[in-house]
């Protein structure tokens, strides 16, 4: 790496080619910073899809004789349980791997719902404008001002906790940010010449919206989706931690934390490792989102902001 960086500083007889090369190089070094978080997320997805193959133990396995065994790097730890065992003798690593499945599923499903609702409303508001724009914007304002955790509490109080409840609550409360981004972008695209051209050849409104407007406003949405994905994973974990999310014995990171909390004085690893997995996931998704935003935003690409 060091030699390539020095290369770019050397005098170059072909300045334009050099500038191009420098651009490629900086893009590459930026890509390097995103490699670790991206690799972590890929690993997590693999763990979530194939937990049976990857987890060292069966999910149901518990071994009371070996309960609260410390992780491998502590005195008394063994290679049998890399991250130790919990109060019932269940392998912490196994439960974290199975927990990834819940976290990612809730994150992905809720982002999909919120994104679909938000993008459609944003397109409608931005493209058709007038009273429907006013209505949707106002609705988004109202939704945004309503604290989601209180709403979640209210809904869970009635419907009862469960994975579908959580996905619906998160999916139907987090659409506002998509509306804002998409609507703003549609407004700037709406007056472009290619839309006038499409209209002149007789394209219908629906065709224009989905074929000409949507592809031009979807990029920022992907960035927003990365961030809401991270937020929703934390939200699910918080709700599960409070006992309002997915009830035990299903392993969720938030639920594991809540259980491990009672054994903090004797066995800190039961609570610490699921939380660490959660923190790393959120950090990775956020770094990925930052990187995507920088890559997709031409202003950042040319200069530095």
């Amino acid at each position: 790496m060091v030699s390539t960086l020095d290369d770019s500083k050397r005098w170059n007889p072909h300045p334009i080619a050099g500038a191009k090369r420098k651009l490629v190089l900086t893009a590459f070094s930026r890509a390097r910073t995103v490699f670790v978080p991206a690799a972590f997320l890929v690993l997590l997805v693999i763990a979530a899809v194939f937990p049976e193959q990857l987890a060292p133990y069966n999910l149901a396995a518990h071994d009371l004789a070996n309960n609260v065994e410390p992780p491998v790097f502590m005195p008394g730890g063994s290679l049998d349980h890399l991250l130790g065992t919990d109060q019932l003798g269940r392998d912490v690593l196994t439960r974290i791997i199975y927990g990834a499945r819940i976290s990612l599923a809730v994150g992905a499903a809720s982002v999909l719902i919120a994104g679909t609702v938000g993008v459609i409303l944003g397109l409608v508001a931005g493209y058709w404008g007038a009273w429907i724009d006013e209505l949707i914007t106002r609705l988004a304002d109202v939704q945004l001002a309503f604290p989601y955790l209180l709403l979640a509490i209210a809904v869970v109080a009635v419907v009862g906790p469960g994975i579908v409840t959580i996905i619906m609550v998160l999916g139907l409360t987090r659409w506002t940010v998509y509306v804002r981004t998409v609507r703003g972008d549609v407004l700037s695209v709406r007056e472009k010449e290619y839309l006038t051209a499409a209209r002149c050849v007789g394209a219908s409104d629906l065709r224009i919206v989905f074929h000409h407007v949507l592809p031009n406003v979807i990029q920022p949405t992907i960035v927003v989706a990365t961030f809401t994905f991270a937020n929703n994973i934390v939200a699910e974990a918080s709700l599960s931690f409070l006992g309002l999310g997915i009830p035990p014995p299903t392993p969720t990171w938030g639920g594991m934390l809540a259980e491990g909390r009672q054994y903090l004085t004797s066995a800190w690893w039961i609570a610490a490792f699921p939380g660490l997995a959660l923190a790393l996931t959120v950090l990775s998704a956020n770094l990925l989102g930052d990187w995507l935003r920088d890559e997709l935003d031409p202003r950042v690409k040319r200069g530095r902001i």
Binding site: A237, L257, A272, G275, L278, A279, L283
Partner: peptide, 12 residues
């Protein structure tokens, strides 16, 4: 700091 889940931070 923006990535630390509140409840995990509290417990730690």
């Amino acid at each position: 700091g923006q990535c630390l889940p509140v409840f995990w931070l509290g417990i730690m």
